[in-house]
Design a protein around this nucleic acid. Structure first.
Lengths: 410, 410
DNA sequence: TCAACTTTTATTATAACATTGACAAAGTGC
DNA sequence: GCACTTTGTCAATGTTATAATAAAAGTTGA
């Protein structure tokens, strides 16, 4: 945590990153255009652009329109010049994405984890990365891997403190992976990287303060503040699933009562729906699942609600009521610009978002609510893997222009 | 929000601020000592120290012990070299503090506001500042005023969006004050600056991630993340008072149900105590307030609980139960290093903090809870005014070494 | 006591960076 | 065709940090 000291190269780093960001955003722009947007001199911009040209990240592309003098040379951002790796784990399966500099997925390799040990998971991931690298030998790839892992992850050390659903405790995943593959590894919780993904390529592009909520087996949030992940002192900020919604509600394995996760999550939603099925004994869902209620999952409830099934809508309305309490609290406490809803089975649907908007309006303070947009994720289940690649892309300038510029794998 | 560009002076600014911070923390240190702590070269440190000597912020003070060679010249931080102004409003009264560079209060001027209009408040504050400046003519004072105001304040514009308890809406306080006194004005919400105060001079010294909770007429939180105020997109982050604790609880003027503020606040605590007095008709509190229950305030409840009064303890236990839900949520969501309790009437007492610790332990996740210290504020009602001065002190380097170094009032 | 060694301080030279101003190149517009 | 504008680059300049050096001031040990 030693804040960077002011050495002369720091200036170049800051300015180059600035120029890089603008190029990525604007896609094509002239040197004078960059000078104006950065408020750097034209000479400085020329120098910085030279290093970007050298790195192959931009290229000259014809001339722009003259504004009464010599027409400017246009510079074009080359997103495919360098690629990044991001991996996500779900249901004992890794998916590793290869993305371009915009975090756009280009290739993907998935692999099942044999066994439930962390060793097996690390082995599998190493193999998948290996395969993906083999298949893309011709590409320049940043020598790092971002990982979206389940559980509580200490981002500084890359140690998984606990991931209850897979039964891992104190797993030094970063270290395990770095010794298997020759890449720097950045590990973070799935929901946290999901937030990064939606911010870079999804619903939150252009937003600096957003909260991503992922609903699946559990519920968790990834918080982005001023464009950066909000981690807290322990990297455990954003544990939305264990926020208390009903102080006297049902007991949670965590020891608390009335945790959001016990009320709103795929199992909770499916459970409520099954319960109602037993009581009402009618409707479309009953026709399909009455015989084998255990087959009814949250996905089916969301799907039925989309088709107007009354029971399903009621179940979701109830869930939305609880979730709205939590989101209202988030709005009051974090005052975000945007809330992005994501999830595997339908929690990221517009139907659900619309329900939530109305209910959150009643819960949150008007002033904070007026500033927030509640919307659905655009990346679906890719959010985490894309975001994992973003963990790498955030370090792109260092990796590209750092001490050993030859460290880029190829 | 235009992020600073990398010009050569930026380096000096960064490094000087770094040296300044270390001097403030260490009080007395040699040049080589600074060089080691900053990892700057000795030559650079000498240059930077020269500018601090010139500004009068440090002075040479004898020699240190030799470690086998020429003994070093010791440098001493001079907290009284320059002073800062911070004001806080409460109960239609301003208190303006003059503090040193450590935010330690040296002088204070209080003034009642005649009438309830914002104009009257601005006039009164301008007069109080004037008086304080007159009385301290011989001092160097930074040409700025920090203000801790009630209500929702947009920190960028200095406009009070709404302060319901004093009936202000859309009040451009920053502008009103700047036109009355010739100083730059920084405005923020009372609880937010309270957090700054406790971090600089109170319970949170040395902490980078803390949440200050102030309990009075209402409840609000000030959040500090990586040493800086967390404001949110609208400067309205930290509205803890309107977090939902009981989804079906009592209606709040804000429109929501079960807001924390309706359950835990001075009026709520006093109200619950009065209610119980009517029912039980006995005990020490009844002896004193049975005849005129309307005279019973929250302060009396806290005082009685300290003396072991059963009824008072029960009332506070109930309040703590509710507050623990909110604090547990804060711990899960923000994962702070410390939570500081403050309040006018006893919410910042060790008795109450002890109650909360036990209850929060049951609510929050173990991993996040293990990282947090729940403690009482050390500044009491001074927290906000001290923190308001901190708003100025945060800008001290710019104010001292900025474009017009002569702008310092004297 | 004196010489060898250390540490501190100041000074000078050097390197990295951004800016300025000049100037040629390449257009526009009357 | 000529005056004017914009663009791209280069050399000169100023700022900052660092490295090297020398002088100053003390310690240590024979």
């Amino acid at each position: 945590m030693t804040s960077r000291i002011g050495q002369p190269e720091l200036l170049k780093e800051i300015n180059r990153a600035h120029v890089f960001e603008i190029l990525r955003r604007e896609r094509t722009i002239s040197r004078p255009g960059l000078a104006e947007l950065t408020s750097l001199s034209r000479a400085t911009v020329s120098l910085l652009v030279d290093s970007l040209l050298q790195a192959g990240i931009v290229q000259e592309a014809g001339f722009g329109a003259s504004s009464g003098g010599r027409p400017p040379v246009l510079l074009e951002f080359k997103p495919h010049a360098v690629h990044a790796l991001g991996a996500r784990m779900r249901d004992y399966q890794w998916s590793v994405f290869l993305t371009d500099l915009d975090a756009r997925p280009l290739d993907c390799e998935s692999i099942e984890i044999r066994g439930s040990s962390a060793e097996a998971a690390a082995d599998a991931l190493a193999r998948a990365v290996e395969t993906l690298l083999q298949r893309n030998q011709s590409q320049r790839i940043l020598p790092a891997l971002g990982v979206g892992s389940p559980g509580l992850v200490d981002m500084r050390t890359g140690v998984i403190q606990s991931a209850t659903d897979v039964g891992w405790f104190e797993v030094p995943l970063k270290q395990m992976l770095e010794s298997r593959i020759g890449l720097a590894v950045y590990v973070a919780n799935r929901s946290k990287v999901g937030a990064l993904g939606e911010r870079w390529r999804g619903a939150g592009t252009g937003t600096e303060d957003l909260i991503y909520i992922s609903i699946g087996t559990g519920v968790a949030a990834g918080i982005i503040h001023r464009g950066e992940l909000y981690t807290g002192i322990n990297s455990s900020a954003g544990e939305l699933g264990h926020v208390t919604i009903e102080p006297h509600g049902p007991l949670c394995p965590c020891g608390n009562r009335g945790c959001l996760q016990q009320l709103v999550s795929d199992p909770a939603i499916a459970g409520r729906a099954r319960e109602r099925l037993r009581r009402t004994q009618q409707g479309r869902l009953f026709e399909r699942y009455g015989a084998q209620p255990e087959a009814l999952g949250a996905g089916a409830v969301f799907a039925a609600a989309e088709e107007g099934d009354e029971l399903a809508v009621e179940v979701l309305d109830e869930a939305a009521e609880h979730l709205a309490v939590a989101i209202g609290n988030l709005v009051n406490l974090f005052n975000p610009e945007m809330i992005v809803l994501g999830g595997q089975s339908g929690a990221g649907s517009e139907l659900f978002a619309a329900m939530l908007r109305e209910k959150v309006r009643k819960r949150a303070m008007a002033y904070a609510f007026s500033a927030v947009t509640i919307t659905t994720g655009r990346l679906g289940s890719d959010a985490a893997a894309v975001g994992a690649a973003v963990l790498v892309l955030q370090h792109a300038p260092e990796l590209l222009f750092g001490e050993q510029p030859n460290a880029v794998a190829q």
